[in-house]
Amino acid sequence: MTNNVSAQSVDTSTLVELLRYRAIHQPEQHAYTFLRQGESGDAHLTYGELDRQAMAIAALLQSRDAVGKPALLLHPPGLEYIAAFFGCLYAGTIAVPAYPPRSARTMPRIQAIVADTQAKMVLSTAEALSDLQRCFAHLPEMESLEWVTTNTIPAHLADEWRKPELDRDSLAFLQYTSGSTALPKGVMITHGNLLHNLWLMKQHCEQTSESHMVSWLPPYHDMGLIGGILFPLYEGFPSTLMSPLAFLQQPFRWLQAISNSGATISVAPNFAYDLCNRKITAEQRATLDLSRWTLIANGAEPIRDETMKRFVETFAACGSVLRPIL
């Protein structure tokens, strides 16, 4: 389906209004595709489907007295995470995205976030629930947390959703630092903060409603969430996503997804371009068509000019006409 509704015609003060606009005017437009194992794209969401899922999740959160309160999101990367994030926004609940803990070793970060936010509710998927609860089992301070599996919420609850009273100054989510060198620190992000950031990205990235994003970045903070998920929504073009692990296991999957989808924009930290330079073979490069990929962004860690020059030179034979943004 051709998307003729550009972001220029969308005047909104919150992300809830933005998604509602897309759902009303472009209900059948593909919004997000998630590549399972980084390759097969059998999971899709349209704007209309995302809107209904967000309303159902929001209605449940509103019925649990979660309006204006923080909720920890511990979803693995995927479409369920996107629906849960917007479900929080639709409810007026403060989303607190975080990496799902993989073992007891990674629990101190989660404990610090729960202590800092005083969150009483954790959102995740039914498939991830048992592993998460195992990680939380020996932590007495976590026993009172309420668990909600967002992908099992009945769809008909969407009819019970009540639009929250939000404006540009309303808090959308809390973004926490990694906690690798100190306790994680939270930053309060409002709807106005996000919309201004997205407007600035629009000015610099020069994408249109005919563009396409590919991202493997973790969807829990700025580059993955704002760049890979929210910016495509703002501009009204689709985004193809995969998990960070899928990329790390086989870097070729990232460029293969760009080739297969005809993506025009993708972002990553410097190490990702270095991995592609070193790991993708000449035989694999011969299968790629990167002729629509015109904008490449590098950030989140020190940027090495030689890495980017080598990347552009190495993949020029794939039809690439990349314009780097560093």
Rank of each mutant, 00 (worst) to 15 (best):
L248T: 11
L295S: 06
M242P: 02
L275D: 10
A286W: 03
R253H: 05
A268N: 01
L248C: 04
I280S: 11
T264N: 06
A268L: 07
D289R: 11
L288C: 05
F271R: 01
L295Q: 06
L233R: 00
S261N: 15
G262Q: 08
I265M: 06
Q249Y: 05
A286P: 02
W254P: 01
C276R: 10
A282Y: 07
W254Y: 06
A263E: 10
R285P: 10
A246Y: 04
L290C: 07
L275W: 10
R278F: 02
I280H: 12
L255C: 02
A268W: 02
I265C: 06
N298Y: 14
Y234T: 10
F252L: 07
C276W: 11
W293V: 09
V267W: 06
L255T: 04
S261P: 04
L245C: 02
S291F: 12
S243N: 02
L248A: 10
L288Q: 03
R292L: 15
S259D: 08
R253A: 11
I280Y: 07
R278D: 15
L233F: 07
C276D: 08
A263G: 12
Y273C: 05
P269K: 03
S266Y: 06
S243Y: 06
P244R: 01
I265L: 09
I280R: 05
T281G: 09
L245I: 00
G236T: 12
S239C: 05
C276H: 04
T281L: 06
I280D: 03
Q249G: 06
D274A: 13
T294M: 14
T281W: 12
Y273I: 08
Q284T: 05
L245N: 00
T264K: 07
F247Y: 14
I303K: 00
L290T: 11
Q250L: 09
L290G: 10
V267G: 08
L245A: 06
T294K: 15
Q249H: 08
T264S: 15
